[in-house]
Nucleic acid binder design. Sequence first.
DNA 1: TAGTTTAATGCAAACGTTGTCAAAAATCTC
DNA 2: GAGATTTTTGACAACGTTTGCATTAAACTA
Lengths: 362, 362
Amino acid sequence: MGSPVKRLSIKDIAKTAHVSNSTVSRALRNSPLVNRETGDLIRRIAEDAGYRPSAAARSLVTRRTHTIGVVVTTISDPFVADVVSGIEDAAEAQGFSVFLANSHAEPAREKRVVRSFEERRVDGIIVTSSRVGSLHVSMLSQMEVPVVLLNNQHDNEAAHSVMIDNHGGSFAATQHLTGHGHRRIGYIGDRFGYQSDSERLAGYRAALEAAGIEFDEALVARGDGKPEGAREALGQLLSLARKPTGIFCYNDMSALGVMHEAGKRGLRVPEDLSLVGFDDLYISQYLNPPLTTVRQPMAGMGRMATETLLRLIAREPAPPVVTVRGELIVRESVCAPRVVRAQARSARAGAGGARASARSER
Amino acid sequence: MGSPVKRLSIKDIAKTAHVSNSTVSRALRNSPLVNRETGDLIRRIAEDAGYRPSAAARSLVTRRTHTIGVVVTTISDPFVADVVSGIEDAAEAQGFSVFLANSHAEPAREKRVVRSFEERRVDGIIVTSSRVGSLHVSMLSQMEVPVVLLNNQHDNEAAHSVMIDNHGGSFAATQHLTGHGHRRIGYIGDRFGYQSDSERLAGYRAALEAAGIEFDEALVARGDGKPEGAREALGQLLSLARKPTGIFCYNDMSALGVMHEAGKRGLRVPEDLSLVGFDDLYISQYLNPPLTTVRQPMAGMGRMATETLLRLIAREPAPPVVTVRGELIVRESVCAPRVVRAQARSARAGAGGARASARSER
DNA sequence: TAGTTTAATGCAAACGTTGTCAAAAATCTC
DNA sequence: GAGATTTTTGACAACGTTTGCATTAAACTA
């Protein structure tokens, strides 16, 4: 009760310390220009009074807000959430605060968000996994603040960016499948034709080619990057005369949908259907079976994006595009296809017949 | 190229419109005090010039930043991410921007976050699922801005809050289990002794009692709210002489861990072990089997929290605590325990012998 | 037509900082 | 012990808005 209703200003501190505003200002930022003792006194007074300098007033004169704007399509996507977590950590560590805005991929909302960021004079902007193309780019380039794109879905020469190595990642994922003897491998992509989708598709095709497997258009189905779309896509793939024995999914969420649908149809993963995802979401390790997938260091990428951005803000040089390699995390959603297993079994039976019969004797 | 390096101020607009700053200021905020035509002209000029008023300058005089601070332990938690999504949507809709800060439950970090919010003069603060008790509360109550707590883990008379009805939700969840004939029901909670944990435990006990089942301390195990802790907790429960046939988990993440561990041990859900969770995360519907759980309307709760906060900011009355009821979402992770199924089968065999034999005849 | 409203505009003082410049005080030099 | 430095401080003008008050112009009244 009786809580001080009036915020203190620098003048209040100056008055009780019997010095001028300037001295207080300097003292609080530990300027060497102020006498040690006076400085200590001032700081003590300010601390005791619970004084907090006004960021607004400060940034009005310094023309820096120590603020970054982060635009995401939706924070409800676990991938995005992890990225944002990394961004916030890195920003906070350097004294920057982050404004978070969902665009929900709605142009109108995006426009409002950008306007808001402009009015708030953010020092820089990070855009994550934007689906919007020209809109963003043109609006963003109007602004005179640095922008960094994270896994953006459209080429953009203007802005700096950090991206996952889609091609390499999906190559490794697909190769993992071919390495287990799969020859009919499906790809469940994203129907919106994003850059990451086409790059992953390309990596898939390259791996197929490397294994001497001919690409079959019928084996690529389009989901929506979410479980629901992937379920439909799986249905499509399973209606084929020659069904795939393994599937590489655009992302883990799709793989989740596939697992679910496969279970519903009485298909067992990996015995009946091998599966590889992309992202390595936190939950992927806890699925039944644990999902083999390509890990994207999401928080790390968020941190990298922040670091480039902060560098740009400080007018230091920064790499225009940093590509991070995904890592194949082998778990239990892949095994050799049934035919291959059968062959192996009979081969073993032939070669090690004695052992086999010995065992069956007891 | 040739991008205007200098931000325009209201004066620039005033100059080209041949009016004073005041008139521009008024015109841009559609004040009725300015002549219609002049207003239109000014607005057109401002629009063409791409003028953006400085939020900092404005809030310096209005003493409102139209900004809210959101503190979460970590945005990587899907529950939290959904809540934040709701918060952001509701805030954006009213022209407020949100500062997001992870505390990672570290006192030092929390302290920095609160300080940052103070300096930025946020108009209000939302704290989600805070684990920290006295620290937050005392620091927050120092601030003269309104605070609303969402699913906070400690009682707090000072702040407004929106909470899930933990007792009712877990009562329903447990009752669902007893309704299927389960008598030995485990509870996997959270080892940190949060309020939500004890309330859910209480709901569980109440449902047990309502079903005439004696509470057995040995059947409550403590996880950590994450899959890993739940796996250990399950191990503990399964080492009991009289194992539970069903388990109610503190949250879906714990249920995920239990499902995973159960699978590893060759236990099938729900045939060998029924499972009910709490939260209804997005992924829960896609698990194998789809998880029966208590739904928390996470985004909705975020929106409610924002609405109360905005009301408080506007100095309008707001309910000090809004409790939202969880909804039991029945999916496929629960069935009758083996013994009950066996009884049912023999009962049916006895009562409907004719029908049964008739069917077996054909 | 003069007097009175009413409608539009402008002036200037905030808001709370920072930073330049000048002044004052303390400390060196020789 | 008087200049020359070096520290340390203070005054004051920004920064870009909003807003109370005064002023001017226009439109009514009687």
